[in-house]
Design a protein around this nucleic acid. Structure first.
Lengths: 123, 123
DNA sequence: TCCTCATTTTGATATTTATTGAAATATAGG
DNA sequence: CCTATATTTCAATAAATATCAAAATGAGGA
């Protein structure tokens, strides 16, 4: 994920309605949800949800497919995890010692342990 | 991190100048950078950088301290990792099987392995 | 105190974004 | 075909955001 796409993705998530949509689509899984169902559950006008879905799609956060009369939207998990990794790359950039324990495993390069050698299993 | 703060944080990162600022502050570490230095390195007018820094501070992404005549800004790593965890919570919500291998460790609850038992070390 | 440097605040302006309702498009069924 | 349904596009408007230049604030040093 390059900076441009990350900026789009952040912008897409920086709005209550869109964040809600992404969350419900993530939970819905690959099956996705019809635009109308999204609008109803999110409590916004169909034209407005369409506007936001277009934005999310442009940011690569969701995909769509037609199914009979409905258009089904579903979350794009690759973009989501790409964004997480983009954030993590910056998070620890140069300063892995600051990393939260919960994140350290994925966030910081496992090969490059700072100091401390010969610690695992003294047996 | 609650939804409100996450929305602020996403909004803060959804802009080229601010994203640049955050990145340079993350790299700068706890020492941080003076507002003027940030403005120069980012290539924007001081008043403009001040505007963006205020936004970043409001979102909890950076902190500031006065040091002689300068005001030093530094990244808030807690917010950054909090945001990552906020994203990860959503990423896998209900669908850990989709998780990218690189993320699975931090992203998906390690206790709840789906199916497949008695697999480690058949010895 | 007065002066200068570093930064912020303010005010004006241009741009982008969000929302609404009405009209247009596409699909399925009688 | 004609009608009903699902969604999008369009046009208008309101609201938020980004940018610049100029004035104001605040902290040392002569």
């Amino acid at each position: 994920m390059d900076e441009r796409q990350a900026t789009l993705a952040f912008g897409a998530l920086a709005q209550e309605t869109r964040l809600n949509i992404v969350r419900m689509l993530v939970i819905a899984g690959p099956a996705g949800m019809a635009a109308g169902a999204i609008a109803e559950k999110a409590g916004v006008a169909p034209s407005n949800v369409s506007f936001h879905l277009k934005d999310l799609e442009h940011a690569g956060m969701v995909g769509s497919r037609r199914e009979a009369r409905s258009i089904i939207y579903s979350a794009n998990y690759d973009t989501l995890s790409g964004l997480i990794q983009f954030l993590m790359k910056d998070c620890c950039a140069g300063h892995p010692e600051i990393c939260t324990p919960a994140l350290a495993a994925s966030c910081c390069p496992p090969a490059k342990t700072t100091k401390r050698r010969k610690v695992l299993q003294p047996s």
